[in-house]
Simulated scan of single mutants.
Amino acid sequence: MSISLTVDGIPVTVEEGATVAEAATAAGVYVPTLCFHDDHPPLGTCRVCTARVDGRLVAACTTVAPDGAVVEVATEEVAALRRQVVGLLFAEGNHVCPSCEKSGRCDLQAVAAETGMLASEFPYRYPRRETDPGDARLWLARDRCILCQRCVELVRDDAGQPVFTLSGRGPGARVELDHERADGLSEEQVDAAVDLCPVGAILRKGVGYDDPMGARRYDTASIRERALRGEPR
């Protein structure tokens, strides 16, 4: 069964059960995301995908699109709210893009550019967070972690057990790495865990700045272009 709605004034028809983010994509309207990852259930943790549905602010990646809804994504008020969310993520961590191994392929960096967040309006906290040397192949740089929980929810070993967990609450929350389970991951699983992180918090040891400028993920196509084409982020 199909439903009809409008996204930024554009009529669109989608299958019943589609999310607001999916409806927006079908209408050709870009909705930025950080915790969401293609081919995985939405998490709804980062709120970077905030949109307005019939006057109510929602997380577009987890909210099912209602029939006949009026969805606002690109209005200045909603766009400003998303810029503030992105600005908070920068202010709460240590994101020095020019010196980061993931520059040019970092989702947070790319979303900041797309949303127009050139400098956070909030005071930078410059937190001092303990790094985790990980196993022989993985390094956990917690000062860059945005607590999107992709790794916590989506990275599993062959037995289906989580490799990453979340400890603490509020400002004390942090991602933990199970060294024993990480050591049992295949090389492909390690690469997948590194690529799954939207920032430079999960890194492979001994590898850095391996993609030359001009050939990095978001050098060749913006995160908006990749998302609207349905390409992996």
Rank of each mutant, 00 (worst) to 15 (best):
M1T: 12
L5F: 02
I10A: 12
P11G: 14
T13P: 02
V14E: 07
E15G: 15
A18P: 01
T19P: 08
E22F: 05
A24L: 09
G28K: 00
G28F: 00
V31W: 01
V31M: 03
C35E: 01
F36L: 02
F36Y: 08
H40L: 00
H40M: 07
P41Y: 05
T45C: 00
C46Y: 07
T50L: 11
G55S: 14
R56G: 02
A60I: 03
C61W: 07
A65L: 05
A69C: 05
A69K: 04
A69I: 06
T75R: 14
V78Q: 04
A79W: 12
Q84G: 13
G87I: 01
L89R: 03
L89W: 00
A91N: 02
E92V: 01
G93N: 10
V96P: 00
C97H: 04
P98C: 08
R105G: 08
Q109G: 08
A113I: 11
A119E: 07
E121S: 09
Y124M: 04
D132E: 15
P133C: 01
A136G: 15
R142M: 03
C145K: 10
Q149R: 10
Q149L: 12
E153S: 15
E153I: 02
L154P: 05
R156I: 10
R156A: 10
R156T: 06
D158P: 06
P162D: 07
V163Q: 08
L166K: 15
G168M: 08
R169C: 05
A173P: 13
E176R: 12
E176T: 11
L177G: 13
L177Q: 14
A182Q: 01
A182W: 00
G184M: 02
E188I: 08
Q189S: 15
A201R: 09
A201M: 06
K205I: 03
G206T: 06
V207N: 06
G208F: 15
T220K: 09
A221L: 14
A221D: 09
R224A: 11
A227G: 01
E231H: 06
P232Q: 04
